[in-house]
């Protein structure tokens, strides 16, 4: 951290705020993984860390290294692009797998009482169509 002492204070404060925000969001998402009841509620939890959490930490890293090396350091954008594209794919496949497994055990979450399903005809959909 020897070179960091020469950074202007506003860069340090901006970086610190962004890093703390991102880490807090990732932590809240992970806590949601513990606290939320039921798989379909828990799937929403990791998106916190993967969207805004990753975004603000990557932005902090870009600002910090650009100031440290006095040239634009933008390669953290690669991680952002990659995470933005891959997280939805993972979660969608996972939800389909969970639906498929629940239906295979005759525990269709769409037919569970009290789940608040706003649907008209539940029988019209064949669970086999979720097999990719």
């Amino acid at each position: 951290m020897s070179a960091a002492a020469e950074l202007p204070v506003w860069v340090a404060i901006l970086t610190a705020a962004l890093v703390l925000l991102g880490a807090a969001l990732a932590l809240v998402g992970s806590i949601g993984l513990l606290r939320l009841r039921g798989f379909y509620d828990r799937v929403h939890a990791p998106t916190l860390g993967a969207t805004l959490g990753a975004g603000s930490i990557a932005l902090a890293s870009m600002i910090y290294f650009s100031a440290l090396e006095t040239r634009p350091v933008l390669h953290e954008a690669l991680i952002l692009i990659f995470v933005a594209v891959t997280t939805p794919v993972t979660l969608m496949i996972l939800v389909r797998a969970a639906l498929f497994r629940d239906r295979a055990e005759n525990d269709d979450p769409l037919l569970r009482p009290g789940e608040g399903v706003a649907r008209l005809d539940a029988d019209a959909r064949d669970p086999r169509e979720t097999r990719g």
Partner: peptide, 23 residues
Amino acid sequence: MSAAILSWSLWAAQIMLALGMSC
């Protein structure tokens, strides 16, 4: 000053992320 702010905030962030990993 800058070094202190950065090292403390990065330390706190690392602890938060480690807690998230344990969850």
